[in-house]
Amino acid sequence: MVLALLSDVHANLEALEACLKHARESGATRFAFLGDLVGYGADAGAVVSVVMRHAQEGALVVKGNHDDAIARGAPYMNDAVRESIAWAREQLTPEQRDFLAALPLSRRDGRSIYVHASAANPQRWTYIDSPAAALRSMRAGEAVYTFGGHVHEQVLYAEVEAGAKEHRPVSASAINVASHRRWLALVGSVGQPRDGRPAAGYAIFDEPRARITFYRVPYDHDAAAAKIRNAGLSAALAYRVARGV
């Protein structure tokens, strides 16, 4: 089974479609969405409906903090983001809102666990920003493979004797992840990368061959940014999508 791991789509339909196409062409037969389908972007409704369709066909979907904020609000977010959440809430149908509200914080499947932030206390939306944080998530999840997003970066952590080691993957370069040790993969952001490169990020996990490959997929980010501006959302959000910051 070849599994495509997509996180932090953030209502960016252009980026999502580019990644799904790339994943299918790369042999992916199963999909996992690791949260934050909405927020920031201008295509909340279209993105959620694509993901709902995949969920009906067996895709794994977990909840992110932006998805959570649709129902519960998020006082900790800044004005521009709160505004985009409020806008998304209006765009979504009641059925789509229910879908988001019903998403689990984490899913376990075989030797893997899927979670938006940290498997140690998923509801606190902790950022995995150090080997120590990665180690806490890996150990709490008690799985061989922990998959997540939230930090909008692509990072692979391996559990080693002394703790966890961090690896910055190179796009399209397969990495062996043998199952005798624990691994945590942060798969990057489909809809809002933040490393100065606007190309969409996602990963493919080939479990039978114990290999993970991270990808960056170019897409029409100018179109996605224009939609944000046309929707009357913050120009700063459009700028971030266009520049990948």
Binding site: L156, A158, V160, E161, K165, H167, P169, S173, I175, N176
Partner: peptide
């Protein structure tokens, strides 16, 4: 190797 995780302490 630049393209593989370095597991050595």
């Amino acid at each position: 190797h630049a393209r593989a995780p370095d597991l050595h302490a």
